[in-house]
Design a protein around this nucleic acid. Structure first.
Lengths: 323, 323
DNA sequence: CTTGGTCATTAGGTAGAAACGAATGCAAAT
DNA sequence: ATTTGCATTCGTTTCTACCTAATGACCAAG
């Protein structure tokens, strides 16, 4: 029975054996230092036959004797000495590879690109960012201010290392990324105190859609979620979004000058601003039974390894939200 | 059940796994060129998962991501680029190792050290040496003229690459060397024609030992063999070696001026010289029944690899003797 | 809006390399 | 004359390098 050769994708037999191997070269170089298989093996933490075999394999490969044992003392042949001369810089370079890399890495600049909507940056992220800046002053920090959905697209394209974004319930999944839930904010309806929606006993989507709306940017998660809710109710075509703004303070300004009502989220401790000149007083009602909650995630590309400074930032953010 | 760690000679577990491997580095460097696992694998003659695994192993080893796949196109991280920058000269050096070695080897001087008794050098070896000189003019040829046993000792000490020597029957074996039998020459007794040993009906050791002897150097194989024969017969103490010489012509001269008789070997076609002035005529008798034959060998250290020019010389000598 | 192709990734399996211990043999030192 | 230290051979075990096949994501054209 002949041994059947294993075919590769290309129909060729495997051929990873006939080849000069680095370990063999390393063994020879060590041998040239210690001048004995026993000493070399000890120095390399190997058994004698292993070293022996590696060196003999080299001789087979190059077709010339490299060492000869005359009595107890071992000598390199001319060819052996030549090979050592050529190869020893390579061995040294390779041995020190990890150290050199670590050294160069220490001195090469680290970067961190954070993306988040401005509300996050002004709010919950302000402290973690500042703390990170203090702890890693050498890291080049890039902060990108984008509404959630735009931020998501940036992350997916590799344009940022980490993001803190809201994700609407029916947005598609992000299979390439890790998501950690940070917070759930209920949606609130904010309107002038004298608005009919502020007075109504019970709110319904039908009632709300009749009013002109002031919403966040259409690339924000809250805008998307609200639209999705109206779509499911078959009311999307009746939405009258008069204004969009990227900023909660602006939204409230527009409501105060009666451009419409807004549906947005607020952290529990957030107070409504006092009315300025020419503005009306505002009130908010919880509409989470209709619109659910906005869910905020830390988002980061999946991968085997997380750089230490990225991890530090991620944990700082998580801790800030946990309080 | 815990997996039992295999203990080495030193009681430590084997540790040839946690280590940066050369192939992994090579894969990364190739990947940096082709920018895709598929293309890299094709270029290296490997399957895609092999390359993938090698690069990921590197990432594990260095603890940082080295490449990221964003969509179809693959990108090196900063760390990956750094590692490639450091390692690619090593890879190139290693890849070209064999070629560089071959090149340097071609331009580095080859040597051949031949040892043999002068009789061989003047006789059977003259033509092979000349032929070799013509065929390999660049080889530095060292010819050492020593009697057989001295030549043997030189070979055993590594002082010569190849030897053509006689070996006496009872000389110790040479386990470290290859021996090829070239010729067997019968021993002859050469004496003046009027000597009693030339006249005697039958020769015996007893008779021969009574005569003064002219022999080759005591480090020659023939001298040793003759001495061994007399020793076995218990006659060694009665040997009266009046003269030794390293050269057959000299031996015959001494016999011709009646310093004694000689026992030596001669090729079949060798004629005795005509007597000079003041010399007597000589005659020879085959004494191989008493002293056996001198056996001539090519001797060469055992080893996996024989350099081409050495082999060429060995074969030239063998051919010269075969005729 | 599916669908087919191409890519990366995971999983499972096999041949071969790389290591070991033990046994042998040579040579020098005690 | 032993012992000891080394190189060498042998047979076996363990680990690696590689494969194929299957899965999943993305992209471009039907």
């Amino acid at each position: 029975m002949t041994k059947k050769p294993v075919a590769t994708a290309k129909g060729l037999p495997r051929r990873y054996f006939k080849e000069v191997r680095f370990r063999q070269i390393r063994a020879l170089v060590e041998l040239s230092r210690h001048r004995s298989f026993a000493a070399t093996a000890a120095a390399m933490g190997l058994a004698v036959p292993s070293v022996w075999q590696q060196v003999r394999a080299l001789e087979d490969e190059f077709g010339v004797p490299l060492v000869i044992a005359s009595g107890s003392q071992l000598e390199l042949t001319e060819d052996g000495a030549l090979l050592v001369e050529i190869a020893s810089p390579l061995v040294e370079g390779f041995e020190s590879l990890k150290a050199v890399f670590a050294d160069r890495q220490r001195h090469s600049p680290r970067t961190l690109r954070i993306v988040a909507p401005s509300s996050m940056l002004h709010g919950a992220l302000r402290k973690p960012v500042a703390a990170f800046r203090r702890k890693y002053p050498e890291v080049r920090l890039t902060i990108i201010d984008l509404p959630s959905y735009a931020a998501r697209e940036l992350l997916e394209g590799g344009g940022a290392d980490i993001g803190v974004i809201g994700i609407a319930c029916d947005d598609p999944p992000m299979p390439q990324h890790h998501l950690w839930l940070l917070a759930r904010y209920p949606f609130h309806l904010i309107s002038p105190v004298d608005h009919s929606l502020a007075q109504a006993k019970r709110l319904s989507l039908i009632e709300i859609v009749k009013s002109p709306l002031v919403l966040a940017s259409d690339t924000s998660s809250s805008h998307r979620q609200i639209r999705q809710v109206f779509e499911k109710a078959g009311l999307a075509h009746r939405m009258n979004v008069t204004t969009t703004a990227t900023n909660r303070a602006l939204l409230l300004d527009y409501v105060a000058i009666r451009l419409g009502v807004t549906i947005c989220t607020s952290a529990a401790d957030t107070r409504l601003p006092r009315p300025g000149p020419g503005e009306c007083e505002l009130t908010q009602r919880d509409v989470s039974t209709l619109f659910g909650h906005e869910e905020v995630f830390i988002v980061q590309r999946k991968g085997r390894h997380e750089l230490p400074h990225v991890r530090a930032f991620r944990e700082a953010v998580a801790a800030a939200f946990k309080k």
